[in-house]
Amino acid sequence: MNLTLHIWRQPSRDAPGRVVTYEAPDVSPDMSFLEMLDVLNDRLTNRGEEPVAFEHDCREGICGSCSLMINGVPHGPRRGSATCQLHMRSFTDGDHIWIEPFRAKAFPVIKDLVVDRSAFDRIIQAGGYIGVSTGSAPDANAIPVPKEAADRAMDAAACIGCGACVAACPNASAMLFTAAKVTHLGLLPQGQPERLRRALDMVTQMDVEHFGGCTNYGECHAACPKQIPLQTIAQLNRDYLKAALLNRR
């Protein structure tokens, strides 16, 4: 099939960017979306034009590197999958496809479609861990964890840190990402001692990084390749409220 691509090009962080249109002829429906871009890049390089910079690594939906806004939807039209898992059979001949970077004040564009998502790491630094130093752990089976709790913790822990939630949210809020971690750790007995502090500190950092607040739009969940449940956000709010009332800091 033949497609028309409208791709955001921006040479560097501070330079202005614009949308450039490229034709993509003879696209096979079995190609992945990123392979389609590989082919485009090869063609551009052969023409002496700089290839489009975009992030990717595992190409199987787990590393969270890939990050494209495709026709206004992060990771494209397929629910529950990352851009690298999207195949061209989701499009039809003659389609126009808009490809833009994930946008948020907290995610500055580095080049073309590559953005800086290190704000997420700093949110984790603020408290997204269980403070246990190597070698001090009790036997793994010493503390039983109810299966339901373990399963729900795993649901939340599946987050790949891609930032699609932020990209999709009209407020550019990082609530789903933050909530996923707070929920994952908060559901486990091991995560209890730091639970309230964690919620306070991670939310504070989220704000420092200039992410927006949550209006409960639900766009984040719809865009999330791991379909992190919205209930995690409620969990975060609850922990935060409790922490504030009990004055835990």
Binding site: K105, A172, G213
Partner: peptide, 30 residues
């Protein structure tokens, strides 16, 4: 909150194309 949320995605960084998947008209008109 509106101010904060607006500044979290400054106008220069708005998308050329946006598609809502989940937000209801009610939510968007708050």
């Amino acid at each position: 909150l509106t101010r904060l949320n607006r500044s979290s995605r400054p106008p220069a960084g708005r998308y050329a194309k946006t598609t809502h998947q989940a937000a209801t008209p009610a939510a968007r008109s708050m």
